[in-house]
Simulated scan of single mutants.
Amino acid sequence: MVSELERAMESLIKVFHTYSGKEGDKYKLSKAEMKSLLQGELGCFLSASKDPNVVDQIMRDLDDNKDGEVDFQEFVVLVASLTVACNEFFVEQLKKQ
């Protein structure tokens, strides 16, 4: 039987590969692929920013090896960072109650 955490890991992998490889390297996200992923999967986070350069900034922040693309390991950093921020927000909300 597959655990909830294993399903979550599988989902992350599937989401990444749904968007990667439409251009260039099929195991990395180009800027256009990253933008498509952000719009399709994290639209609320993206629309909250009024900065038109938000995708460029995210790419710069994630592209650790500076190859102009985001690989799976770099992508997981984004997911982990957003998850930590969401957890901190929910913990603060619970403390206020």
Rank of each mutant, 00 (worst) to 15 (best):
E6H: 03
E6Q: 12
R7L: 14
R7W: 10
A8T: 11
M9N: 05
M9D: 01
E10M: 08
E10S: 04
S11Q: 11
S11Y: 09
I13R: 11
I13C: 04
K14L: 11
K14Q: 13
K14T: 12
V15W: 05
V15A: 12
V15C: 12
F16Q: 02
F16M: 04
H17C: 01
T18F: 04
Y19H: 10
S20C: 06
S20K: 03
G21T: 09
G21C: 12
K22T: 12
K22R: 14
K22V: 10
K22H: 15
K22E: 10
E23R: 11
E23W: 02
E23Q: 12
E23T: 10
E23P: 03
G24Y: 03
G24D: 12
D25Y: 07
D25V: 03
D25M: 06
Y27I: 00
Y27L: 05
Y27M: 08
Y27S: 14
Y27A: 09
Y27W: 05
K28I: 03
L29T: 04
L29H: 07
L29G: 02
L29D: 03
S30M: 01
S30V: 02
S30F: 02
S30R: 00
K31C: 01
K31G: 00
A32P: 01
A32I: 05
A32K: 12
E33C: 03
E33K: 04
E33G: 04
M34H: 02
M34P: 00
K35T: 02
S36D: 15
L37R: 05
L37Q: 05
L37W: 06
L38T: 07
Q39N: 15
Q39I: 12
E41Q: 15
E41A: 12
L42Y: 14
L42K: 07
G43I: 07
G43Q: 13
G43T: 08
G43M: 10
C44K: 15
C44R: 13
C44I: 14
C44P: 10
F45T: 13
L46W: 07
L46M: 11
L46N: 02
L46Q: 06
S47C: 01
S47H: 08
S47A: 12
A48K: 12
A48I: 01
A48M: 08
A48V: 00
S49R: 08
K50V: 00
K50L: 08
D51H: 11
D51E: 14
D51G: 14
D51K: 13
D51I: 05
P52L: 07
N53W: 06
N53Y: 09
N53V: 00
